[in-house]
Computed example of a mutant assay.
Amino acid sequence: MNRRDFIAACAGLSLTVKAGDGFAQSGPLTRIIFPFAAGGSGDSLCRILAQQITEPLDRNFIVEDRTGGDGLIAITAVKNSRPDGTTILVTTGPTMYLLPMVEAQPSFDTARDFVPVSLLARFEFCVVVGPAVDARDFKEFVGWLKAHPDKATFGVPSNGTIPHFTGSRLEQVLGIPLTRVAYRGTTPIINDMMGGHLPFAVTTVADVVAQHQAGGLRVLAVASVKRSPFLPDVPTLQENGIDLVADGWYGMWLPAGSPPEFAGKLSAAVAAAIAKPEIREKLWTIGLIPVGSTQQGLVQELAANTALWQPIVKATGYKINN
Rank of each mutant, 00 (worst) to 15 (best):
G317L: 00
G93Y: 15
T16N: 08
L57N: 14
A256Y: 06
G93T: 14
K265H: 09
K79S: 02
T16P: 09
L308I: 15
A246T: 00
N305I: 10
K314F: 07
G39C: 02
S267W: 08
F262R: 03
R184M: 13
L145G: 00
P100K: 03
D247E: 15
G143H: 09
A147I: 03
V142K: 13
H164Q: 00
V209G: 05
F123W: 14
V128T: 14
I62V: 15
I286L: 09
G317H: 00
Q238R: 15
P149I: 07
A111M: 12
V219E: 01
V142F: 00
A77R: 10
Y250H: 11
P116K: 08
G143V: 06
D247C: 09
P311M: 08
G27A: 10
T236Y: 04
N2R: 04
H164W: 04
K18V: 11
R180Y: 07
T67N: 04
A182R: 00
V291R: 06
S168Y: 13
E171I: 00
K18C: 08
G185D: 03
I274M: 07
P131G: 01
F138Y: 01
N321E: 14
T204W: 02
G251N: 00
R3Q: 14
G248M: 02
T204D: 04
T161M: 09
N240W: 01
L244K: 01
N60L: 13
A246E: 00
T285A: 12
L98V: 12
P235G: 13
T91V: 13
V299N: 11
A19T: 14
L98I: 09
L98A: 04
A223N: 08
A147C: 05
G195W: 11
I274W: 11
L49Q: 08
Q52L: 11
G160T: 06
I73F: 07
F123K: 10
I33Q: 07
P131W: 07
T204N: 06
A275V: 05
W253M: 14
L308E: 11
V222Q: 04
W249K: 08
L170T: 02
A50K: 11
P232A: 07
A152S: 02
C46V: 03
R180G: 07
V270A: 14
D134F: 10
F125W: 01
L174Y: 02
E103Q: 15
G85V: 03
A74F: 05
G264T: 00
Q105M: 10
V129Q: 13
R47P: 06
E171M: 03
D58L: 10
A304W: 07
E239Y: 07
I312G: 08
R184H: 09
T236H: 03
G248R: 01
F6A: 07
A111T: 13
G130N: 09
E64Y: 12
L15I: 04
M101N: 02
A315S: 01
Q295G: 02
V219G: 03
A275W: 07
D58T: 13
A221P: 11
E301M: 13
L98N: 12
C46A: 14
W249I: 08
R59D: 11
G20E: 12
P290Y: 01
R47Q: 10
K314V: 05
T92D: 12
S228W: 04
S26R: 15
G143A: 11
N305C: 15
P229T: 05
S107K: 09
W249G: 15
F200A: 01
L308Y: 13
K226D: 14
S44V: 10
S81H: 06
P199S: 08
G130W: 06
I279R: 00
